[in-house]
């Protein structure tokens, strides 16, 4: 089966700095792919190349079997790549359902003053998120009132809910306590069953071992190793990240 995302030999320089010197990555549908590496290994630059923030200098990015070059994150989103950034892009003073449907509101009528179909959005948010989340907050609650884990879950649930084929998550549980981290990991597990490809950047190797199907290691702007998670142990990953023998 064609992987959702297929990246080959992507290179990107900023002036004299070669941030990417041959990055590779495969994200199959229905799997969790982990991207690991030390700070400055090129993970963030690679993500920015995928989502259209940067244009790669060379190499190929295929999305659902098609070569793509997104001009902006909005462009990437329109084609089905959602990114959950660390700031989550939630509006604290709006309710859960309003955030869920932000800029995708269901409306009746036409023109700039289209009428919101509040009832339908509230019900559908309950259905969509209720199915995925273990710690589902009240749909009408303002995000300001939610815990960090609930916010993270809403942001991920929203990203996964809009017909996207690929959800990219940057350190999805870095700021969370133990129990909340568990809830977010359950959500990620549930999304696997939805057939979405998930790409996760994480420094937490225990977590990577727990939730991922495959692991890709970057160092010095290159992809230097990849394994099926079940075939590798933590020591070898650490060695690869740090620059020992693979």
């Amino acid at each position: 089966m064609t992987p959702v995302l297929d990246i080959r030999d992507v290179r990107k320089s900023f002036g004299a700095v070669e941030a990417l010197r041959g990055a590779e990555l495969l994200c199959p549908a229905g799997e969790v792919t982990a991207l690991v590496g030390d700070n400055g290994a090129g993970k963030s630059t690679l993500i920015r190349c995928i989502t259209g923030v940067h244009a790669p200098d060379s190499g190929s990015i295929s999305f659902r079997g098609e070569a793509v070059a997104f001009s902006s994150p909005t462009d990437a989103r329109a084609r089905g790549i959602e990114t959950v950034y660390q700031d989550l892009a939630l509006i604290e003073d709006l309710a859960v359902w309003q955030n869920m449907y932000l800029n995708r509101e269901l409306t009746r009528g036409f023109g700039p003053f289209r009428w919101l179909e509040r009832r339908r959005m509230i019900d559908e948010t309950q259905t969509r998120l209720g199915r995925l989340l273990v710690n589902m907050p009240p749909v009408r609650a303002k995000v300001r009132r939610l815990s960090g884990g609930q916010r993270q879950s809403i942001a991920i649930g929203r990203a996964a809910s809009w017909g996207s084929s690929l959800v990219i998550m940057d350190e999805p549980t870095a700021a969370l306590g133990l129990r909340e981290r568990g809830a977010v990991e359950t959500l990620i597990g549930n999304l696997r069953g939805e057939g979405i490809a998930q790409l996760i950047i994480s420094h937490d190797l225990e977590q990577v071992m727990r939730i991922s199907d495959s692991i890709w290691v970057m160092r010095g702007g290159r992809t230097i190793a990849n394994w099926r998670t079940k075939d590798v142990d933590r020591t070898r990953i650490v060695a690869a990240i740090a620059g020992g023998t693979v």
Partner: peptide, 13 residues
């Protein structure tokens, strides 16, 4: 309205 929601979002974050 969607317009109002977007105004609130613009002001909120």
């Amino acid at each position: 309205t969607a317009f109002g929601t977007h105004v609130l979002a613009t002001g909120g974050n």
